[in-house]
Nucleic acid binder design. Structure first.
Lengths: 138, 138
DNA sequence: CCTACCGTACCACTACACATGGTACAGACG
DNA sequence: CGTCTGTACCATGTGTAGTGGTACGGTAGG
């Protein structure tokens, strides 16, 4: 009965990418949802379908989907499929704070010594982040 | 002949830290050098000494030191020890650009969906990064 | 009802990175 | 020479990522 239009092939995984396959999937879908390319209620490719499309293991896709569901991005319905969830926050405040702190820590460690001015670094972050924030009705 | 004062115990590794041991060491030393706690020419603990102090394997310490040397932070002298190198850039411009892009990409993927305003995120990055930049005589 | 598709849960296996343990060699120094 | 330094090699254990196959319950349409 649910008449959400199925999503075309919008993802791709690369062996050259240093990120794990699971991570490439979760990152890609997160960006697609945050940027509005995937509206609320849109149906995602099935676990087996996406696995077939990307020529990877269904278990790997299921792991990625599972992580996205635990973060509140997706809503899985047994027998129906996976859908983009309404913007809600499944992560507790302390957990979000912790994740931000870890991310900032990791980022700073990476860019120290690259010899870029602070302003340039902030601009790059801002440019990448701006189109991905506040695109959804929170 | 080289009379650089040896550094006291300034590092610690934790199993609770999600980062690998090698990464904890490299991050810690990078910050110590960038912030000025370790001046140019200062001698670092020996591979075996630091391994003993942290109760880890000397090979792990050597790996961390090797990475820091390839990035230009340290200068290894066979039979003498490891010293904080003068600020120079061992990484090519394209390599630095690539690393910045990768770091920004990873960071944005982490903070999307945490539901923090852009300004707050930039403030956190700025706060963490400011005391670590331009502290060395470039 | 029955078949086909959905998410999900097992199991076993391979591949790889990380860390460890030990041994060994070349350079620097007193 | 003895002892410190960095460095290189060997083998081993361990945890994670990814694969491959099988199986169960829920949902839909003929």
């Amino acid at each position: 009965m649910t008449m959400s239009k199925t999503v075309p092939l919008f993802l791709s995984v690369s062996a050259a990418d240093p990120r794990s396959i699971t991570r490439q999937i979760t990152d890609g879908i997160r960006v697609a949802i945050a940027s509005g390319k995937l509206p609320v209620g849109a149906q995602l490719p099935s676990v087996r379908g996406l696995a077939l499309q990307l020529t990877i293991n269904p278990k790997t896709v299921a792991n990625a989907y599972g992580e996205l569901e635990s973060e509140g991005w997706l809503h899985a319905r047994q027998g129906l499929g996976l859908f983009v969830a309404a913007p809600r926050q499944r992560l507790s405040r302390p957990e979000r704070d912790r994740r931000l702190a870890v991310a900032v820590q990791a980022f700073t460690s990476e860019v120290i010594g690259l010899d870029y001015p602070l302003e340039h670094i902030l601009d790059r972050v801002s440019a990448k982040l701006t189109p991905l924030l506040n695109k959804r009705s929170a």
